[in-house]
Computed example of a mutant assay.
Amino acid sequence: MQILRDQLQAGSDESLHLLKGRVHDVEGRGRTGFALFHAARLAGPVFWIVLTHDRDRPMPGSLPDGIAERLYFIEAKDETDLRWTVEEALRARPVSLVIAAPEKPISLTAGRRLQLAAEAGDTTGLVLIHEGKGSNVAETRWKCDPLGSTRHRWIPNKNKQGTPGIYDVSWNGTTAAVHLVPQAGERHQPESPPR
């Protein structure tokens, strides 16, 4: 039976799952939405680590259902403090997701330390980066941009476990369910009813 892409939920699509025990990068104007989507679909505590002066963070009242009770915001005074805090949070159990928002690129050595910490804690890390400032050791690097109020385009530009692609998704920002939307020209005709 053919499954139509526009009816497929991301929960059954392995390509939208972030590999556990690894650190991933995400860039673009939709990076916060991408982070919230993954926070909604993972069970357990979520740590969001930002620099003290950074005001680009979601407000608790605007979070998808079930996240506010599990979300811990941590403010770091500088980049060194931020990296140390991210590393410690990645090692902690039973943390499910650690989201970090550094201003500067993460060096190869610092990126490797974060990967080792994620492996040790079996935790998923997501680093919200500025355009082109990702770490070479990231498991995946996503480019995320909104296409409207509920439509987004998520492109894995780097993927150590698979091939890059383009995912146009429709997500209302309130649940862990997302619908993949076919690219223009890729729409499938519904199957004929059985006779």
Rank of each mutant, 00 (worst) to 15 (best):
M1R: 11
M1V: 14
I3L: 12
L4A: 15
R5V: 12
R5A: 13
D6P: 08
Q7V: 11
L8A: 14
Q9P: 00
Q9D: 15
A10C: 12
E14D: 13
S15V: 11
H17G: 11
L18N: 10
L18I: 07
L19R: 05
K20I: 14
G21T: 02
G21C: 04
H24S: 04
D25F: 03
V26Q: 06
E27H: 04
T32I: 15
F34Y: 06
A35M: 09
A35G: 09
F37S: 03
A40W: 02
A43T: 14
A43F: 01
G44R: 13
G44D: 04
P45S: 14
V46W: 01
W48D: 11
V50A: 11
V50D: 04
L51G: 13
R55V: 02
D56P: 00
R57T: 11
M59P: 00
P60D: 02
G61Q: 03
G61W: 01
S62F: 03
L63W: 02
L63Q: 02
L63I: 03
L63A: 01
P64A: 08
P64L: 05
D65G: 07
G66F: 05
R70Q: 07
L71D: 01
Y72H: 10
I74G: 00
K77D: 09
D78V: 07
T80C: 00
T80V: 09
D81S: 15
R83P: 00
W84D: 13
T85D: 03
V86Y: 05
E87S: 11
A89V: 09
L90I: 08
L90T: 12
R91F: 03
R93I: 04
R93V: 12
P94G: 14
P94S: 13
P94Q: 05
S96M: 07
S96F: 00
V98D: 11
A101G: 12
P105H: 09
I106P: 05
I106T: 12
S107P: 09
S107E: 06
T109M: 10
A110E: 08
R112S: 05
A117H: 11
A118M: 10
E119D: 09
G121C: 09
D122Q: 14
T123Y: 03
T124S: 13
L126M: 08
V127A: 09
V127Q: 08
L128V: 06
E131M: 11
G132P: 07
K133W: 00
K133H: 11
T140V: 09
K143H: 11
C144M: 08
D145K: 13
G148S: 05
T150Q: 13
T150C: 01
R153Y: 00
R153H: 08
P156S: 09
N157Q: 14
K158T: 03
N159I: 07
K160E: 08
Q161R: 14
G162M: 05
I166M: 05
I166S: 06
N172L: 00
N172K: 06
T174L: 01
T175M: 04
A177P: 00
L180M: 06
P182V: 07
Q183C: 03
A184Q: 10
E186M: 10
Q189S: 13
P190A: 13
P190E: 14
P190F: 09
R195W: 04
